[in-house]
Design a protein around this nucleic acid. Structure first.
Lengths: 240, 240
DNA sequence: CAAATATGACTGACTAGTCAGTCAAATTCA
DNA sequence: TGAATTTGACTGACTAGTCAGTCATATTTG
């Protein structure tokens, strides 16, 4: 843990730093689109690809084993890279872990922020959100990340803080707005719900946990559950 | 794993050592409750106490660091015992971990089973249960165990299975009974709730997670939240 | 005192992080 | 243009440690 003393190194190499800059700009170019027939990756592009590969491999390994039990040798092998290469891109194991969570969560933030954009009743918005959440998060690798946060968050306060700031508080703020809108429109009768947006999200989180822990033995119809929960919030409107 | 080589040890130094032993035993004598005037612990009792101490220490260490990062040296020190002693009581680290979770969960099962015993309306029962849950679990070390299950459950399928069998399925079954009773009594209008007892429990679980991850920075009035949630389930009954 | 217990120094397996050297790509030069 | 030179991304053997589990020795008990 607290190994790596300050050391007396001074890092003659003024280089290194620019790697980040180049990688960052090239990051957008990444792989993905293959419409192009010829693709001669230059140095910066290859570096960005490597970085990407390390993050992806790290995601797989960390979600499979947790932070402490993950071996960087395995991450390197899975990424098709030498172990030392990891340290060209990330300061240490923890930095990789944080960057990985960071990267994987940006899309989540996007989703949460975009939800209110669509029109319709608040109930419709939440119903759509529930379906999207189950399909895109609870039952995918993104769900593993959420579980990873819950699992390791207590051991990485800075990670928990980041997650709270960037995802939880924003998500809850958006949800509160939505609830207030529902109250104003007369869709939601209990005004106190706006005090605890967590209530609306809770079953979705339980769905994520359930899927990861018990999903194989006792599958849960998460979408159906979330709809029943919405019935509680908005009052039943089953067609029966 | 596959150790057990021949070895070529010799160790001439038989010196010192015993001084430490005396100090160690003196420290271990500690113990807590001294209400009893005479206490002649025989061999079996002392062994049981040791075992207990190891489990308690293990609980503290595992909840603080997770499975992989916990050192048995620390567990031993915290228990006031030598490391070897742990192996007199448990086959290995994993056995200690499982036994510890097992032991710590028995009380939880008791709580869940006892809930319906008390009389009153279903709403009253659940309200009492919510208060108890927050006071005795969410904000105590028991909550850490729940988080520990979520954290390590994916890595220990047998542990997740045990937890599901012994706690989750029983707890949900009891909750379903309660919900059905509420429906029969006319307290709960949405009959579909009985299909998803998870919904009733979800905010309580969120409270546990919240307390562990964000509690220090953003405290959550869990009891108030759970009551609002009960308002959703039973219909408002705020005196206003 | 012999048996039962407890101890903690020790071992071996394993791993995070380092760094001197390599070589393909980029750049400069003639 | 194409040979010479420079760059820096990448490698992987290596260092310095960590820690689960063992066992010879010491202590306690009946």
């Amino acid at each position: 843990m607290k190994t790596a003393k300050a050391k007396s190194r001074k890092i003659a190499t003024a280089s290194s730093a620019n790697t980040r800059a180049v990688a960052g700009s090239a990051g957008g170019a990444t792989s993905a689109q293959t419409g192009r027939p010829a693709k001669p990756p230059n140095r910066a592009e290859r570096a960005a690809q490597r970085r990407e590969a390390i993050i992806t491999a790290g995601l797989d390994e960390f979600t499979a084993r947790g932070f402490a039990a993950t071996r960087l040798d395995d991450v390197a092998r899975r990424a098709g890279v030498a172990k030392g290469t990891i340290y060209l891109h990330f300061k240490d194991k923890e930095a990789l872990f944080q960057e990985l969570v960071r990267t994987a969560l940006v899309p989540l933030i996007g989703n949460l922020a975009a939800a209110p954009a669509a029109g319709g009743s608040v109930r419709d918005i939440l119903e759509r959100f529930a379906e999207t959440f189950v399909r895109e998060i609870a039952e995918t690798k993104r769900g593993d990340i959420v579980r990873l946060i819950v699992a390791e968050g207590a051991r990485f306060p800075s990670l928990a803080d980041f997650y709270f700031r960037e995802v939880v508080s924003r998500g809850l703020a958006a949800m509160r707005k939505l609830i207030e809108s529902g109250i104003a429109r007369g869709e939601i009768s209990n005004a106190r719900l706006a005090d605890f947006p967590q209530i609306v999200v809770a079953p979705a989180l339980v769905a994520v946990m359930w899927h990861g822990l018990f999903g194989r033995h006792a599958p849960l119809d998460a979408v159906a559950m979330l709809k029943v929960h919405l019935d509680l919030i908005f009052g039943e409107r089953r067609v029966s």
